[in-house]
Amino acid sequence: EDTPTSDDLEQFAKQFKQRRIKLGFTQADVGLALGTLYGNVFSQTTICRFEALQLSFKNMCKLKPLLNKWLEEADSS
């Protein structure tokens, strides 16, 4: 899998936040949902820092596919 560039991550974080708000989920909701879906719960702080691009590049890269999958799930339900 290609490592995203920081531009990709920035773009995704922006879109993710917009979609999340549009779908009516809080950052805490997302963190809990990730726990339900993938077995690891993320704190509201982590989601907040992802959206604000304040996590390390490595952590951003790790979270992106999970959040992307969550968006697909949320969109289809």
Results as ranks from 00 to 15, higher is better:
12 F>Y: 12
10 E>D: 06
9 L>C: 06
17 K>F: 00
2 D>S: 13
20 R>A: 00
13 A>W: 00
60 M>E: 01
28 A>T: 07
43 S>M: 03
66 L>Q: 06
33 A>V: 05
37 L>P: 05
21 I>H: 06
27 Q>E: 12
46 T>D: 15
12 F>I: 02
19 R>G: 05
47 I>K: 02
44 Q>L: 06
64 K>G: 04
68 N>G: 15
57 F>T: 13
22 K>M: 10
45 T>Y: 05
32 L>V: 04
33 A>I: 08
38 Y>N: 11
22 K>H: 07
25 F>D: 01
49 R>G: 06
16 F>A: 02
42 F>K: 08
73 E>D: 15
68 N>A: 12
24 G>D: 03
1 E>C: 11
73 E>Q: 15
12 F>V: 04
25 F>C: 07
48 C>S: 14
53 L>E: 05
73 E>R: 08
12 F>E: 06
21 I>N: 05
6 S>M: 15
72 E>R: 10
34 L>E: 00
4 P>D: 14
52 A>V: 02
55 L>S: 03
44 Q>P: 13
19 R>T: 11
23 L>Y: 08
48 C>L: 08
75 D>H: 10
27 Q>M: 04
61 C>K: 11
52 A>H: 06
30 V>D: 01
56 S>R: 04
19 R>C: 08
1 E>A: 09
70 W>Q: 01
29 D>L: 02
55 L>D: 04
36 T>M: 09
65 P>R: 07
52 A>R: 07
40 N>P: 12
1 E>L: 09
44 Q>W: 04
43 S>R: 06
30 V>W: 01
50 F>M: 03
42 F>E: 10
60 M>R: 02
4 P>I: 15
42 F>D: 05
9 L>I: 15
69 K>V: 06
65 P>G: 09
31 G>Q: 07
29 D>C: 03
36 T>C: 08
16 F>N: 02
38 Y>D: 11
61 C>R: 12
16 F>D: 00
69 K>H: 07
73 E>K: 15
28 A>M: 06
66 L>K: 09
49 R>A: 09
71 L>Y: 07
37 L>M: 14
69 K>W: 05
46 T>A: 07
65 P>I: 07
74 A>E: 10
37 L>H: 07
71 L>E: 02
74 A>R: 11
26 T>S: 12
21 I>M: 13
13 A>F: 01
58 K>A: 11
40 N>T: 10
3 T>V: 05
56 S>I: 02
72 E>G: 07
8 D>F: 07
64 K>F: 06
65 P>C: 14
19 R>K: 14
21 I>A: 06
66 L>H: 05
75 D>F: 05
71 L>K: 03
18 Q>A: 11
28 A>C: 07
4 P>V: 15
27 Q>S: 08
31 G>R: 04
25 F>E: 01
42 F>S: 06
36 T>Q: 11
52 A>S: 13
74 A>I: 12
56 S>G: 09
27 Q>W: 05
58 K>G: 11
47 I>P: 00
70 W>C: 02
31 G>L: 02
34 L>K: 04
16 F>P: 01
21 I>Y: 03
17 K>W: 01
71 L>F: 02
48 C>V: 09
77 S>I: 11
68 N>R: 12
34 L>P: 01
9 L>Q: 03
40 N>K: 12
77 S>M: 07
4 P>A: 11
15 Q>T: 11
15 Q>S: 13
37 L>I: 15
8 D>Q: 14
11 Q>F: 10
34 L>R: 01
38 Y>A: 10
46 T>N: 04
34 L>H: 00
67 L>G: 00
70 W>F: 09
44 Q>F: 04
51 E>C: 00
19 R>Y: 02
71 L>I: 04
59 N>H: 13
43 S>F: 03
51 E>T: 00
10 E>P: 07
20 R>V: 01
76 S>G: 13
72 E>A: 12
27 Q>D: 04
57 F>A: 09
17 K>Q: 12
39 G>D: 10
10 E>Q: 15
8 D>I: 04
29 D>F: 02
31 G>E: 06
39 G>M: 02
20 R>S: 02
64 K>T: 09
55 L>T: 03
66 L>S: 04
50 F>E: 01
39 G>A: 05
58 K>T: 11
35 G>N: 13
73 E>A: 08
73 E>T: 15
16 F>R: 02
31 G>K: 04
9 L>D: 03
33 A>P: 00
60 M>P: 00
51 E>D: 02
9 L>M: 15
11 Q>K: 13
69 K>A: 09
56 S>T: 08
40 N>M: 09
29 D>K: 06
35 G>D: 04
70 W>V: 04
8 D>R: 06
66 L>P: 04
23 L>V: 02
5 T>D: 11
36 T>P: 08
19 R>D: 05
61 C>Y: 06
69 K>L: 08
70 W>N: 04
53 L>Q: 11
40 N>I: 11
66 L>M: 12
11 Q>C: 08
40 N>Q: 15
41 V>A: 13
3 T>R: 10
28 A>W: 05
2 D>E: 11
15 Q>R: 11
46 T>F: 05
36 T>R: 13
63 L>D: 01
46 T>S: 08
41 V>S: 12
66 L>D: 01
5 T>R: 10
60 M>W: 02
51 E>S: 00
20 R>E: 01
62 K>Q: 13
37 L>C: 11
7 D>M: 14
9 L>V: 09
29 D>V: 02
57 F>M: 11
12 F>Q: 01
22 K>W: 04
2 D>A: 11
61 C>G: 05
43 S>G: 09
29 D>W: 02
74 A>H: 11
36 T>K: 14
75 D>A: 13
26 T>N: 04
57 F>C: 03
56 S>W: 01
77 S>K: 09
1 E>F: 15
58 K>S: 11
47 I>F: 01
46 T>Y: 03
44 Q>N: 08
9 L>R: 01
47 I>D: 01
52 A>Q: 14
24 G>C: 03
77 S>N: 07
57 F>S: 11
41 V>L: 08
45 T>G: 09
41 V>W: 13
30 V>I: 06
70 W>L: 03
2 D>R: 12
34 L>I: 08
64 K>L: 08
2 D>M: 13
1 E>N: 15
25 F>P: 01
35 G>Y: 08
20 R>M: 00
54 Q>M: 05
65 P>N: 08
28 A>E: 14
16 F>E: 02
69 K>E: 06
19 R>P: 00
77 S>V: 13
19 R>A: 11
41 V>Q: 14
60 M>T: 05
7 D>R: 14
